[in-house]
Design a binder for these strands. Structure first.
Lengths: 137, 137
DNA sequence: ATCTTCGCTGCAACAATGTTGCGTTAGAGC
DNA sequence: GCTCTAACGCAACATTGTTGCAGCGAAGAT
């Protein structure tokens, strides 16, 4: 476990601190998107503000992306490899389960191309599905 | 103006109070989705809590729906006619402009049907586009 | 291995937003 | 107009987002 996390941090020119290793490790182990509360619960000792800044840093570097899911809480998930510091290419849909409140990335569903009216310039598109997931049926 | 608003409220068995008339009127006049802050700014005298509850009531009755736009702020827009107390059918995409921070409903773009993996049950789907809108180019 | 530097951490403090309880006010029907 | 109850508005608190700053620790140089 350790090495993959450290290598990933180094490849983004980030210092390999305890907090960052813990948070990143959580993401790599998790099958679904994580919210701040969720992370705080799993890493009991973590400082709220540090977590806030860690997530912001990760997002700016293109390691994680926000996963809007309509729950009102911001969640984050690991980016796929083609994300960069400058642009997120988050082309899969997110599914939010209203029972367990988890958000999973649906890699099999891609966000469709849309043709916008004249004058609009599009930067990103997100497809959000909500309902009940496998485990909660 | 008055009459349409009052009729709409009555058709949902809601008392026609000053606050509700003001808020609903704003929605009917607005071309884009409104956030709480936005509404408070336009209706200076309005009470923050009352607005919160008014929006919640409207949403429960199916008059307005939340418009997730990735801005981190919850926004609301008038529902189309087929919305009801029990289910929202919000089949158009939303476009969020990162410059003016407005969210407009793109009635011309419909959310595509998706085929989910085994075991998932879907209740709603939202398509969120973000970029720069007509006016901000 | 130790030192130096600078980024990261963690505390304090504050702003914005979400939420509930409760006494008062005002709409709707009589 | 009177009564009844829903809606309002204030207080109070919870949660989340955000910045400043002093001290700590990771990375590279000596």
């Amino acid at each position: 476990m350790e090495k993959a996390v450290i290598d990933l941090l180094k490849s983004y020119q980030l210092r390999t601190t305890t907090v960052r290793k813990q948070v990143l490790d959580l993401f790599m182990q998790s099958k679904h998107a994580l919210g701040k509360t969720n992370i705080e619960a799993q890493l009991e000792e973590i400082d709220r503000i540090t977590l806030y800044r860690t997530l912001r840093t990760f997002e700016q570097k293109g390691i994680i992306h926000e996963a809007v899911d309509g729950s009102g809480k911001t969640k984050y998930a690991l980016c796929s490899h083609e994300c960069s510091e400058h642009a997120h290419h988050d082309h899969h849909a997110h599914f939010y389960c209203s029972l367990c409140e988890n958000t999973v990335c649906m890699d099999s569903i891609t966000v469709p191309e849309v043709s916008l009216p004249e004058g609009f310039r599009i930067n990103s598109a997100q497809l959000i599905l909500s309902g009940v997931c496998q485990n909660c049926q």
